[in-house]
Structure formats: structure tokens, C-alpha cells
Simulated scan of single mutants.
Amino acid sequence: MAPAALTLNPWRPSAESAAPAEAIDGLGTDVPATIEWAVRVGRDAPLPGSGRTVRLWELLANAARCDVAAARILEPHLDALAILDQAGGDGVDVAGALDDVGADHAASWGVFAAEGPGARLEASSHGSDGWRLDGTKPWCSLAGSLSHALVTAWVSPDARRLFAVPLGADGVTARSGPWFSRGLRQVVSAPVDFDAVRVVPIGEPGWYLSRPGFAWGGIGVAAAWWGGALPLQDSLGAAAARQGADQIAALSAGSADAVLWAARAVLAEAADAVDTGLGDEDAGTLAARARAVVADAVERVLTLADHALGPGPLTSDEDHARRVADLRIYVRQHHGERDLARLGRRVLP
């Protein structure tokens, strides 16, 4: 069966879910309003692996097409909902866990799973008193604005486990920086300190990283990168269509079209593969390939836009300048040559 097409049709969510992204005043710049929008979107968003993965990734791409920061806020919330759904499918009492951390349909979620030098978060069991978190977690986006998060913490020297955390609980301190980024400036990603914070485990040790859904979520991020580059392609096309435009302008527009078309085809095929079903190892390889292709395409379009359009829009067009800055930071979730080296090790005979 042929893969579903990634069509990027205008997104029209149901009336009870959310207004289209374009209708949200301050989308991407007003953080509370954007989080509220993301929560509404999450109530009806498709789940990965449900047969509608392509629609989920179209949703993320369309959000990024409207505003990159909005997609950066939406994506982890949707990822958290997918993780909780997958945990329920693997026998976790998700309803009970959510009740224990005070999360209802209005909860806003982050996913904090990064590690970094000089920061370590550890979880310890206290018998009938449950689990506690102590330490510091780096790269916690919008921890001071969200209500809840799924957080990985070390439970032994070589094993991590996922926990649901109420971010407003006593003992949680979300730092305001350092965050000097010019891109995604409002999506502050800074450390969070935990001091004997009561949390609830989601899945067994190692479950979060070993499930196929970990790879699926990584491709969803790539779909957002791709959508974020589409307005730059539009700008290149408009420049090439101007009277007096030279062949370089046409070349730039054609190059952007080709690489983004190829990335779209990869995303569509990946969505079909996710819905068909893949083992853990195959899912990881699929994600590594898809993210590499999309990241290369997006970085190529960013460079084409810089070269073909010159400094004008970067210095005098607020929307363009912010999109470029936001997208450059967002796509750095792909670790470039290091991720390609990991892919190479995966596919070695």
C-alpha cells in the first residue's frame, strides 16, 4: 500500500477542540495563550501509531508553518499525551498516576529527558510514601509556565525511569536561565531543581527510551522543522517571481522546492511505517534517517534564504527574522554529525 500523502491541507480542528492556529492572538509570542491553545489542540490530536500518524505530523507542520515557537510549545505537550497513552497500553495505571499528581484535562505538559554535565536527577523509593526526586534536570523548556511534566531520573547507576511530576509542587524550583538565545527566546529552556518532590513512576526502568514511541516522537519533531521552513520556501518563490529576478533567484527557489519535497516524501513514508508497525530497532533507524533528511533540508533552505534574500528581511522583517532565529535553534535538536555517526553505527553490517 502506498504511503499516505503529507498534504498539509489547512488544519480545521473540531469546534470543541481549538480554533485554527491563525486565529490565536499572540500565537508563539504570548506563552500562556499558546500553552492554553496547545492544551485544547491536544484533546483531539491524533496519536502516533493510530493509523493517523500522518495527520498528527501535518498538525505539527502546520503549527510550525504558522509560528515555529508555537510548534515548539505544542510538540512536547502532544508527545506527553502520546507517552501516557502508550504507558496505558503497556499496563500502567495512567488514570491513577494522573490523579496522584493532580493532572486533569486542563493540564499542560512538558517532557524533560535531557542529560547534561554537572546536573543529575535521581529518584528514590520510600516504600509506602512513594517516590521522590532530588537533584537538577537540565534543558527543561517552559518549566515555570507548565503545570506538569514527564521527567526521566536515575534509579540506579545505569538505568533511568520516567516519572510524572506536578511542577507547582513544593520543592520544584524552575530557574529562569541562563537563556540568552535569540531564537525561541520566549521558550526558556533552563535547569529545574528538585528537592524531595513526590512523583509517580510511569513505566518500568528503561521503558521510556526502549519503546518504539520514543522514535516516533523524534520524527514528529522533524515534521515541525519541515513545516517551519515552508514560509522561507514561499519567500524564495516570491523573490524569484519578481520582475527582473535572475537565474540565481530561480535556482534558489528550485533548490528549496526539491529538498523540501524530498523531506516531505520521507515523512509521509515514515508515517506509513509507524502505522504499519515496526520493532524497536527498526523504529530507531527510521527516526535517525528521517530526522537526518529533514534536518539537512531545513538547514539547506535556511542557507538558501540567507544567500538569496540577503540581509533585508533578516533586519527589517520581524516575522522572517524571528522565524529564521527560531528555526535555527529548533533544528539543533538534531545533533548534526554526531547523529549521523550514530546512524552509521546502526546500519553497519
Rank of each mutant, 00 (worst) to 15 (best):
M1V: 15
A2C: 15
P3K: 14
A4C: 04
A5K: 14
P10S: 00
W11K: 04
P13D: 02
S14K: 12
S17R: 13
P20D: 01
P20N: 00
A21T: 00
A21N: 03
E22A: 08
A23F: 14
I24P: 09
L27A: 00
G28S: 00
P32C: 03
A33I: 03
I35C: 07
W37V: 02
A38C: 03
V39A: 06
P48W: 06
R52E: 07
V54S: 01
V54A: 05
R55I: 13
L59K: 01
L59Y: 03
A61N: 02
R65I: 00
C66F: 09
A71R: 02
I73H: 06
L74I: 03
L74Q: 03
D79E: 10
G88T: 05
G88W: 07
G88C: 05
G89T: 14
G96R: 04
L98G: 04
L98I: 09
A103R: 06
A103G: 04
D104P: 13
A106S: 15
A107W: 03
V111Y: 06
A113H: 15
P117S: 10
R120D: 12
R120K: 11
E122Y: 15
G130Q: 00
R132D: 04
D134S: 07
G135H: 07
L142F: 03
A143W: 04
G144Y: 15
L146A: 03
V155Q: 01
S156Y: 09
S156P: 12
A159E: 14
R160V: 07
D170G: 15
D170L: 12
G171L: 02
V172Q: 07
P178E: 06
W179E: 09
F180Q: 12
S181D: 13
L184Y: 09
R185Y: 10
R185E: 10
Q186G: 14
S189F: 08
A190F: 05
P191M: 04
F194H: 13
D195R: 08
V197M: 13
V200W: 13
V200N: 08
P201D: 00
E204L: 13
E204N: 08
P205L: 06
W207C: 01
S210Q: 08
F214M: 15
W216L: 09
G217N: 14
G217E: 10
G220I: 06
A222D: 06
A222L: 07
P231G: 05
Q233K: 09
S235Q: 11
L236W: 04
R242K: 14
R242C: 11
G244S: 08
A245R: 00
A249D: 08
S252Y: 09
A253C: 15
A253D: 14
A256H: 00
D257Q: 13
L260E: 01
R264Y: 09
L267C: 00
G284D: 10
R289M: 09
A292L: 08
A295L: 06
A295P: 02
D296C: 08
R300E: 12
R300F: 04
L302H: 04
L304V: 08
A305W: 12
H307Y: 15
H307P: 10
G310D: 00
L314T: 10
D317R: 05
D319M: 13
A321W: 10
A321S: 12
R322T: 11
R323M: 05
V324P: 11
R328M: 11
V331H: 15
V331W: 13
Q333N: 15
D339R: 11
L343C: 08
V347H: 03
P349W: 08
P349D: 03
